[in-house]
Design a protein around this nucleic acid. Sequence first.
DNA 1: TCAAGGAAAATTGTCGACAGTATACAATTT
DNA 2: AAATTGTATACTGTCGACAATTTTCCTTGA
Lengths: 238, 238
Amino acid sequence: MSENPDPPIFSPVTRDALSQKVARMLTDAIMSGKLKPGTRVSESVIARDLGVSRAPVREAGRLLESAGLLISHPNRGFFVRTMDSEDLDSLYELRLAIECEAAARLVRQGPQEVIPLLRKQMEQMIALASSGEIAAQVQADMHFHRLMIEGCGNRRFVSVFKKVASEIQLGVALIGHVNDAPDNIARNHEMIITALDSGDEEAARAAMRYHIGIARTAVVAHFQRLEAGGGHPENPAS
Amino acid sequence: MSENPDPPIFSPVTRDALSQKVARMLTDAIMSGKLKPGTRVSESVIARDLGVSRAPVREAGRLLESAGLLISHPNRGFFVRTMDSEDLDSLYELRLAIECEAAARLVRQGPQEVIPLLRKQMEQMIALASSGEIAAQVQADMHFHRLMIEGCGNRRFVSVFKKVASEIQLGVALIGHVNDAPDNIARNHEMIITALDSGDEEAARAAMRYHIGIARTAVVAHFQRLEAGGGHPENPAS
DNA sequence: TCAAGGAAAATTGTCGACAGTATACAATTT
DNA sequence: AAATTGTATACTGTCGACAATTTTCCTTGA
């Protein structure tokens, strides 16, 4: 880890594509609940509103589609992704499969380099716990898990988790609050770190199973209560 | 699985979006090796060749990107996805995680309805084994696994597997041939069916581990040999 | 009152054009 | 000769316009 031979005076100027700005706006609108599940996201309307042509909006739509925040129907355009509790549940099940495997892999190859990163991220989470910003808390939580998965060395796990994470973030945003005390959640990650550090592959797996299981039952139960109350507009599928 | 209630006299006229036709063409070209990994896929060139505008080509590009067959660099366009053996290996590892979980889930919820489908698909594979068409054989193989995953009831597993499958198909296409005798491969799926039928969750998991492990070592080893021989052009990343 | 039908409006799919950006190569300087 | 600069070319990002399709809404008939 030495200095670059050519000392970097300038960092690359952020010449962000228009489509990415649009994507960010849409993501914010969806995550903040300004765009509710099932509502149409019309290219032309968004383009008019933002004062750009339809091309970058379309592009942004495709991007969010592959992130799982929008879905598209041919000739009908984009709609904000709807979720039912089964959706969310299957999401957690996928997460479980990926993360157990990642944790095991990480133990197998030696987690010494990754554990400090995880610990630091957990501090971050504890710091965030007192702020009421659940979106930021959830994001920090996801980042912890992402660090672990990145550390395990399987690129594929990372890309799958990215999509899973964004969808789970959406689900939690729809619920609007978390069940457990935020600093409790943060501190619970200590268990994962300990398990990873123990060198016991099966213990690591078990820790992940436990941790994700808690989140799963809490979030899914919340969501079901929301469904029972008739919380969400439905998907206008044929 | 009965007949549709509305007897389908006419199938929907193929009013397929232009972009999907383009996507099919590109997929074929990539899978058949006419477009080699790393080569540029220029919107404008493809558009000229096919006699359409760039818009549908762009759309098709994004589609294949999310299928993992193309990658895009900002302001530089699309390139055929390159693969190294580690890529392929991580792909099989992901597959392993998903399919073990799917098999276990399927056993847990009772596989009675799915097993006949699997058996039928295996017959299909055996029938295909004598034809030299490896692409079709691989596709049939993937379809078997897809049926199992669809049967397990977790939607998310299916969508992940779709992507995994298309990438593995690409990898195998690059190799150009399979190691084992095709009818052997086909018949090996009998073991999976038996395990699923046994009602033993752990047996089902073990069967998947075994099955995918075989394929993994064979394919990855082949690919490494190919790499050593300097088979593929490299990705022109910066 | 409600269902079916049919224009009218709105929206997506596709097109061709232009501007901004990257790459290759020639010209220039050291 | 090597490195740097300038230039030409090809390509993507974005735009506005038109065609095809879907959606809306109003009419019509029972």
